[in-house]
Computed example of a mutant assay.
Amino acid sequence: MTAPGLSIALSIPAAEQVNDNAKVAAEKDAALRKSAAEFESVFIAEMLSHAGFDKALSENSGFGGEAFSRMLVESYAEELTKNGGFGLSDQIYSQLKDRSS
């Protein structure tokens, strides 16, 4: 094998390793972004509950209505987060991304 052929053969495993590292980094980044969004969603749901939104939805509806209203509040919080929320997930993501680098 000639020197140029040898360098190409040696660089293929290195290129595969770089691709694997990039894939792992992208997966970690996606997981971090998802966790930050989930945290914001839970935070918004708690804010809405403490503001009495779940009780207002379930007024005079009994135990089933209370359980349903909590699920509805959580659903609203998830939708708010998907549509931009308060920007808390972006801030959390940025802070955690800086620390993991």
Rank of each mutant, 00 (worst) to 15 (best):
G64K: 13
F63V: 14
Q95R: 07
A77E: 00
M47P: 02
A25P: 02
M1K: 15
A31E: 08
L96D: 00
T81D: 10
E74V: 02
A67C: 09
M1L: 14
R99E: 15
Y93V: 08
S41P: 10
E40H: 08
M47K: 05
E27V: 01
V73C: 08
L96F: 13
S7N: 07
A14P: 01
L32A: 10
S94N: 11
F53I: 15
I8A: 14
A9H: 11
S69A: 15
T81A: 05
A15Y: 02
H50N: 13
E79S: 14
K55P: 03
V73D: 00
A9M: 13
N19Q: 09
Q91C: 05
S49G: 15
F43K: 01
D98H: 15
L88G: 01
S58K: 06
I8R: 15
A77I: 01
S89L: 09
A67V: 12
E27N: 07
Q95S: 12
A3T: 10
F68Q: 11
F43R: 05
A36T: 04
K28G: 03
S49A: 14
A9D: 09
Y76K: 11
F68N: 12
Q91W: 06
E74M: 04
G52C: 05
I8D: 14
S100F: 07
F39V: 03
F53V: 13
K34G: 00
N83F: 01
G85H: 03
S75V: 02
S94I: 00
L88Q: 07
S94A: 15
L6E: 10
I92Q: 06
A77F: 04
I8W: 10
L6N: 11
M71T: 03
A67F: 11
V42H: 12
F63H: 07
A25I: 03
N19P: 00
F86P: 00
A14W: 08
A56P: 06
I92A: 06
T81K: 10
A45D: 06
G5T: 06
S41H: 04
L80T: 03
L96I: 09
A45C: 03
S49H: 13
S69L: 12
S7H: 10
T81C: 03
D98A: 15
L88H: 02
E79N: 12
F43P: 00
F39P: 00
E59L: 10
Y76T: 03
S11Y: 09
I12R: 08
A51S: 13
L72I: 05
L88N: 00
L57M: 13
K55W: 09
F86D: 08
Y76L: 12
F86C: 11
S49R: 15
D98E: 15
L80M: 14
